[in-house]
Amino acid sequence: MGRYLVRRSFSSLVTLFGVLTLVFFLVRLHPGDVSLLYDDPGMDDAAREAIRRAYGLDQPLASQYVLFLASTLRLEFGSSFSHHRPVAQVIAETIPLTALLAGAGLFVELLAGTGLALLLDRRRAAGRGTIAGTCVLALHSIPSFWLGLVLVAVFAHGLGLLPPSGAGPPGAAAVHLVDRLRHLLLPAATLGLAGAPAIARHLAASLERVSSADFVRTARAKGLSPRAVLLRHALKPALLPVVTIVGLSLPLLVSGALVVEVVFAWPGMGRLAINALHARDYPLVIACTAVAGAAVVAGGLVADLVHAAIDPRVRDAHSSDRVGRP
């Protein structure tokens, strides 16, 4: 396990550097003067000098790259034009809310995905697979922002049951917690339902594979009811690849969280990034992108390590990090 941990972590580190390099070069693609991107009109000369030194804006590309990597890893992203505060501070304030939303969304996604997969499996067993499959496809065809708007229109404006936007009032009191949950319900549902079909499909395929395996047939031969077979014997092994699937779906989850945050005015990092874009606050946009990429890499690492912890076969394989990926 230890060797696998080292190998996998190293691989993630390389990917992280790749992500940061990609960000660096994309920024350099900007047609105008790149140093202007970091030039906040409201900054005084001392601050401007500090930025210039930190990013090496008047030095050759190679040293700029090194400085960029160094300052990014030190979590020094410069100063935000629109917030007049260090970018790291601004982003740090929004991460907990995005994490909350993403976590809740992931929970809904797994719940709905498992439910749909079980439904698909049942239908397939009964020979009516195509219709159920089409239903899952239909869910897959719904854009998440539109789903969010429809849910708001129905549950908030129409029925008046839930708040249409926001994350609830600030504060940690118990009454606020309940209010926070009320505000979380629709955004998490939107995020989760948008990602559920993908999970459902993979899980259904996995279930199908497992159901035809020997140990399942043995269980059935022993006289256990199909339901008991499914739940007690087939589901657990079928769930193993789900950990990896979760890791794979992280980019979509983070992307989806941005869209959901905009629809529901949820004050997380995604909404911050969009507002930063509209305000032409480049340091903030670049930092958000880098952080989002890094978060996905980190999440993928965690998912793979969890998978390895559960399933010993993964660690022993000789091939590189790409074990278990379809």
Partner: peptide
């Protein structure tokens, strides 16, 4: 494949966001 992994790791919307801010 490493390059593919890197781009895959990126949340798509953030990548497009970055591009939209620069051009």
């Amino acid at each position: 494949m490493r390059v593919t992994d890197v781009v895959l790791s990126f949340p798509r919307v953030f990548l497009v966001l970055l591009l939209a801010s620069l051009f």
